[in-house]
Design a protein around this nucleic acid. Structure first.
Length: 934
RNA sequence: GGGCGGGUAGCUCAGCGGUAGAGCGCUGGCCUUACAAGCCGGAUGUCGCAGGUUCGAAACCUGUCCCGCCCACCA
């Protein structure tokens, strides 16, 4: 029996074997015709930008636990898998590859470039799916979707056209965020602000046209952090109430470099008198405030930038310069012409492109926008009235705030990789046709035949926003859509709450008339062991596969910091993961179960989840513990037939106890999983399995199997087999592989299906509530622990047997301890059965410990040093005195007695009585210690 | 400038009204026939600081100091 199983669990082979088994038996399939209640999760589709990282492993774990748990609750479960084309991100990856070949996308042309991206997509997408399978992801792979599949592309086009028809998508010319590196417009969300940048506030003067030196200043000094934008200045604004500048109202300024006079305008909105010089240069085409100011005053908008960030022909002599060169050149020239007026250091924030990292330039451009306000209102309402619940709920405020202040969404991108905008421009009359058709042959306005499709593609999040229903066949009214929309849980990182979750809410409500999911579960970011975000710079990224399959550190760090020397990468890596210092040459193959359990054990409401290899090791050990516990059990439960119900009426305390604990543990597991507290759910099972089932129950069964009666053995066999089978089912969502591997070998009821993945999830009814047994078992264990402590403190060899006497005035306790004496004898290694008796004369050579109302006396003749014992007693007494003082203070306070709940008072009284008893015994003990050395 | 989160054992964190918990680390003893990836013991905390509410606060309130995120157009 046990011989066939090796001593340690080897995950690698078992995991691959069982995954194939599940797929082969269609365990993960969902069917719209299946009448059982549904449970649906639409997987956040990973980007096809490479391979998965630990953040994906976390998402995979959370969702797979939820999915497997509900599947075992007999639900018709759909986990909709997919991958995302990730427009700008993927295009950037492929462009970077091209650059290594010395080419740009323009060298290839649009069609050839797209062929390259598609090839990359195949490669990356395939790898991602394989990685998910290794993690144990139990999604319905037959339904795998890609955001640019023909059916999803059709959904995108349909959504665009409908929103356009409804007036919710429009084309407009306005100030937008421009990324000069990728040469595309970005939405507000794709711009990150870099804070606390040390910059300068540069001051220069504009000469006043026709100024009379006798009547005040002849120049107006302005301050700016971007001097080159002065090439596009079309006004300078002062505050209308600023006495310094009253004499200049209505005057004009001469632009020193371009042939232009610009007006001095008064504007109380733009100008803060206390800041800078109180005069603000106005560049409507390149600044958000100035743009608005320009509109208020009807100022011209002069664009000075080319799309690549160089100065255009409006920049006069500076034309052709790169923007930061131009900044220097402008400053130099201003100094030359005597208009420079100094500069001050200035702390500012810089807008940077999330993708390319370069400073974003506001420019005026014609783009497509989605009108958000009408879409945002229903999304706000749905969370307010609870149709969708966001967990952890502190995110609700953030969600509300964003939607309440939402700006229109710029959805066009000047990229090649993505969904082409379904609009056609007539070359004859410039009319724009938005259509579901692939082409337009005739302009409906002028009749011209020369129409070309819009060159731009859609923001990748536009298609993502449709994901919960586009994957189910929308706009067709498919059975899948009817059955599986809305989904139950949307589990994703909080970092894409706005990018994705809020937009799915809006689109789902708009197109389906119903929320896309009942709950949003937001998890934190996986960071390294020291709490730092994973990045190439820090060389602290870990490929989940390296943890699962094992990998030498040399290759791990090379992956973390490609191109660097092993020594350099290794140094950085070890700084990020201090615990690997004591780990030899590499990660062992922890297995997917260990990685999953580690990720599940972190509180999902933490914003950062610090990945610790040492911790994974701990959970790997747990998997091994489970394996060995089953291995042991298999040696004892041969021939048992299980009914699927807990043993009818167990007589032995230990069996009653473990069944009671079992029921509670599985109940806590379900509560944890359903309440999005996977840490609590997995923790309850971990604690139950290791600290109760293994540390106590399995040990307690040994004396029974060794010398119990046949009836006792039969009862225990059944209880043990039932507990193991049930515990494996409870653990399965967290550690699917090891549980399947073991469950297949363990006795189980005939009614069970062919895989644990389809077996019923245990409930409290799989246990047997027995508070009395729990109380008695606790007393028993406390006595055993007390005896062990004495042994250990007095350095009794673990193998040695000692006489033991248990004394108590409580008749109930006496009868309990007598009945269970053999367990005490076995686990505390006593010399013969312990003597259970009432209080009496203290026997010589015994050492006492008091637990509850039981005195535990261990005979240590010849082993005890009186001095040491005296020290122990003094130490213990001191602690007791301290605790007692606190308790007495509370119990003598009439306000406490009057106000505290009865149970709290009773508890305090019990505790006090117990401590007093202990004090009494120990005081007595102190007097006798001297004898010990005799 | 607003908002959010955090500061608990050496480390990472859980607890969120009844006098402190886990894992790892540390430490003493054990190869006890499921597991040394193990077993049996042990030590360790003015729960950021200051006030307040309460019979009682790590938990609730106020202020304060650090740290981290998010949002925002101060030139």
């Amino acid at each position: 029996m046990t011989e066939e199983l090796p001593k340690a669990y080897e995950p690698a082979e078992a995991e691959a074997r069982w995954y194939a088994f599940w797929v082969e038996h269609g365990v993960f399939r969902a069917d719209a015709k299946d009448p059982r209640p549904t449970y649906v999760i639409a997987m956040p589709p990973p980007n096809v930008t490479g391979s998965l990282h630990m953040g994906h492993a976390l998402l995979d774990t959370i969702q797979d636990v939820l999915i497997r748990h509900e599947r075992m609750h007999d639900k018709n479960v759909l986990w909709q898998p997919g991958v995302d084309h990730a427009g700008i991100a993927t295009q950037t990856v492929v462009e970077r590859q091209l650059r290594r070949e010395g080419k740009t996308r323009h060298d290839l042309g649009r069609d050839e470039f797209l062929r390259r991206v598609w090839a990359w997509k195949e490669q990356s997408g395939g790898r991602i799916v394989e990685q998910m399978k290794v993690m144990g992801v139990s999604a319905d792979w037959d339904r795998l979707k890609f955001t640019m599949d023909p059916d999803l592309s059709r959904a995108v086009r349909e959504a665009f056209v409908r929103l356009h028809e409804e007036g919710l998508i429009y084309r407009a010319t306005r100030l937008v965020n421009w990324d000069v590196e990728t040469r595309t417009v970005l939405s507000d969300l794709e711009v990150d602000t870099e804070e606390n940048v040390q910059g300068e506030l540069y001051e220069f003067a504009y000469p006043v046209v026709g100024a009379d030196p006798t009547k005040g200043a002849t120049e107006l000094v302005v301050a700016t952090t971007r001097p080159e934008t002065m090439l596009g200045d079309t006004a300078v604004a002062v505050h209308p109430d600023d006495p310094r500048y009253t004499h200049l109202h209505g005057k004009k300024l001469r632009h020193p470099f371009v042939d232009r006079e610009i007006p001095i305008v008064t504007d109380a909105v733009l100008v803060d008198m206390k800041f800078g010089t109180g005069a603000v240069k106005v560049t409507p085409a390149h600044d958000w405030n100035d743009f608005a100011t320009g509109k208020r005053h009807g100022l011209p908008e002069i664009n000075i930038l080319n799309l690549d960030g160089t100065i255009n022909e409006n920049g006069g002599e500076f034309a052709g310069m790169e923007r930061f060169q131009a900044r220097k050149a402008v400053k130099r020239k201003l100094a030359e012409v005597g208009l420079e007026r100094g500069s001050k250091p200035h702390v500012m924030t810089l807008p940077r492109s999330q993708r390319s990292g370069v400073v974003v330039e506001p420019i005026i451009s014609t783009q497509w926008f989605v009108k958000m306000e009408p879409l945002a209102q229903p999304a706000l309402a749905a969370v307010k009235d609870g149709r969708t619940v966001i967990l952890p709920e502190d995110w609700v405020k953030t969600y509300d705030h964003w939607l309440e202040n939402i700006q229109d969404w710029c959805i066009s991108r000047q990229l090649w990789w993505g969904h082409r905008i379904p609009a056609f421009h007539c070359k004859g009359c410039a009319h724009v046709v938005v259509t579901r058709e692939d082409s337009v042959s005739k302009c409906p306005k002028c009749g011209g035949a020369d129409l070309a499709q819009d060159e731009d593609v859609l923001d990748t999040w536009f298609s993502s926003a449709l994901w919960p229903f586009s994957t189910l066949g929308w706009p067709e009214k498919t059975p899948d859509l009817a059955r599986f929309y809305p989904s139950d849980d949307m589990s994703t990182g909080y970092d894409i709450l706005f990018f994705w979750v809020a937009r799915m809410m809006m689109m789902g409500l708009h197109f389906m008339g119903e929320v896309p999911f009942r709950r949003v579960l937001l998890n934190g970011l996986v960071v390294d062991e020291t709490g730092e975000k994973m990045s190439k710079v820090k060389a602290n990224s870990i490929d989940p596969l390296d943890l699962i399959h094992g990998a030498p550190f040399d290759s791990v760090v090379q992956k973390a910091l490609p191109g660097a020397s092993v020594a350099e990468a290794s140094q950085k890596f070890k700084r990020a993961y201090p615990s690997v210092a004591q780990m030899g040459q590499g990660f062992p193959a922890y297995g997917a179960d260990a990685v999953r359990l580690t990720l599940a054990s972190h509180s999902p409401q933490a914003r950062r989840i610090a990945l610790s290899p040492k911790r994974i090791e701990g959970y790997r050990n747990f998997c091994n513990k489970v394996y060995n516990a089953v291995r042991f059990s298999l040696g004892n439960v041969g021939g048992v037939t299980l009914s699927g119900k807990p043993p009818a009426a167990p007589k032995l305390l230990v069996n009653r106890w473990i069944l009671s604990r079992l029921g509670r543990a599985v109940e806590e597991s379900t509560a944890g999983i359903r309440g999005f507290r996977l840490d609590e759910g997995s923790g309850a099972l971990y604690h139950f399995f290791w600290n109760e089932l293994c540390d106590w129950y399995l040990e307690l069964t040994k004396p029974i199997f060794l010398e119990g009666s046949d009836a006792e053995k039969a009862e225990t066999r059944e209880t043990l087999a039932h507990s193991i089978e049930t515990a494996l089912r409870a653990l399965h969502p967290f550690v699917p592989f090891v549980t399947e591997e073991l469950w297949q070998r363990v006795p189980r009821p005939a009614s069970r299906p062919k895989t644990i993945a389809l077996a019923p999830y245990p409930t409290r009814a799989d246990g047997r509530d027995d508070p009395e047994a729990e109380q008695d078992a606790k007393r028993l264990m406390d006595v055993i622990t007390a005896a062990r402590t004495i042994r250990s403190e007095h350095e009794v060899h673990p193998g040695a047997k000692v006489p033991l006497r248990l004394r108590t005035t409580d008749a109930g306790a006496r009868s309990l301890l007598s009945a269970e004496a053999r367990f005490v004898a076995f686990l505390a290694k006593t010399d013969g059965a312990p003597v259970v008796e009432g209080p009496g004369e203290r026997p010589r050579g015994f050492v006492v410990s008091v637990t509850g109302d039981v005195e535990v006396l261990v005979g240590l003749k010849g082993l005890v040093e009186g001095k040491k014992e005296a020290e122990r007693i003094e130490r213990t007494l001191k602690k007791i005195e301290k605790d007692l003082a606190g308790l007495e203070k509370r119990l003598s306070d009439p306000k406490f007695l009057a106000n505290a709940p009865a149970e709290v008072v009773v508890q305090a009284k019990d505790q006090k009585a117990q401590l007093e008893r202990q004090r009494e015994r120990l005081a007595e003990e102190r007097g006798l210690v001297a004898e010990l050395d005799e």
